[in-house]
Amino acid sequence: MNRDALAEFLRRRREVISPADVGLSPGPRRRSTGLRREDVAHLTGMSVDYYGRLEQARSTQPSPQIVRALARALRLTDDETDHLYRLAGHAVPDRLGRSLHVGPALLFVLDQLRDAAAFICSDTEIVLAQNDMARALMGEIPIGRTGLQASMCWRWFTDPRSRAAIPPDEHAQHSRSRVADLRAAWARRPHDPDMHELVDGLLERSPEFGELWTRHEVAVRRGQRKTFLTQVGPIVLDCEVLAATDGQQLVVLAPPAGTSSRDQLRLLAVVGPQSRDGHHDRATATNHENSVE
């Protein structure tokens, strides 16, 4: 790990990214045109103190998950991301098959969706980025994690708490559509380690998944109406799944025309985010980053 070079690189990249580039308001008290340290900490979900130590060349080695989150927050290109991994003392991830790097253009589109909840995920349902409305609706999902626990599909079939925000009478439909979509993704790359691990792990852990998998239903998810149970009441949203590059998906949860869902989403954004088990969540990004360290 090259602490000095890493610190200098992070400072320089932060200084050339404007708040508007990442969907932040400039604010009347900003003295510089670039991002502040606290902005980067917020975008990555780490504490301001830890990020400050990175820029001061005083930190411990950042994990690959933190490096990945920094690359997204700073809108780094593939070459810059590879450079960041090397400075942090990590091997550059293999980009063959699925990519967990979200391009700047797709992140820009995500940031423009103000009145809809939206997120970007991989074909194994690993969330790669969320907008503010999605955080309010779904809770702050730790970005940059890998492995089985990072997959929303894995959590749906192995952790009952992940279903708390969905009405019980919709669980079966969600399960069926998830498995049919995963079957389509599996057919595209059945021998990739992450896909192999997810499917085999679910077959071992979840009888429900196993029964649905044997049906061999294939249906790429493109659109459906969903209900979310929140602290401001049930919110009905139209879910549209837009395919992007490298197996990534932009998922937009938009209020149906002529309903009160838009006003409910706005109220939810004021009240505060849901936790990922469907309850009100007041946990801070600082607490999350301290647990990572």
Rank of each mutant, 00 (worst) to 15 (best):
R3F: 08
D4S: 14
A7M: 02
R12T: 07
R13T: 04
A20K: 12
A20P: 00
G23R: 09
L24I: 12
G27D: 06
S32W: 03
R37I: 05
L43R: 10
D49G: 10
D49A: 15
Y51F: 10
Q56H: 14
Q56S: 11
R58D: 01
R58H: 03
T60E: 08
P62N: 12
P64N: 10
T81Q: 12
D82V: 02
Y85M: 11
Y85T: 06
L87I: 05
A88I: 00
H90N: 07
P93M: 10
L96H: 13
G97I: 06
R98A: 12
S99H: 05
V102N: 07
P104L: 01
F108I: 00
D111Q: 14
L113M: 15
A116D: 13
A117H: 11
A118Y: 08
C121D: 13
T124C: 03
A129Y: 03
D132F: 02
R135V: 15
E140S: 12
E140T: 11
I143S: 06
I143G: 08
R145M: 12
F157R: 02
F157I: 07
F157A: 03
T158W: 02
D159Q: 13
A165D: 04
I166E: 01
E170H: 15
E170A: 14
S175T: 07
R176F: 00
S177A: 11
V179S: 10
L182H: 01
R189V: 01
D192Y: 07
M195A: 06
E197W: 03
E197Y: 00
V199A: 01
V199N: 02
V199C: 10
G201Q: 02
L203F: 05
E204W: 04
F209M: 06
W213S: 07
R215K: 12
A219P: 00
K226W: 03
K226Q: 01
Q231E: 14
P234E: 09
V236R: 13
V236Q: 08
S260T: 14
S261Y: 11
Q264G: 04
Q264I: 05
L265C: 10
L267I: 14
L268F: 06
S275A: 15
D277T: 07
H280Y: 14
A285C: 05
N287W: 14
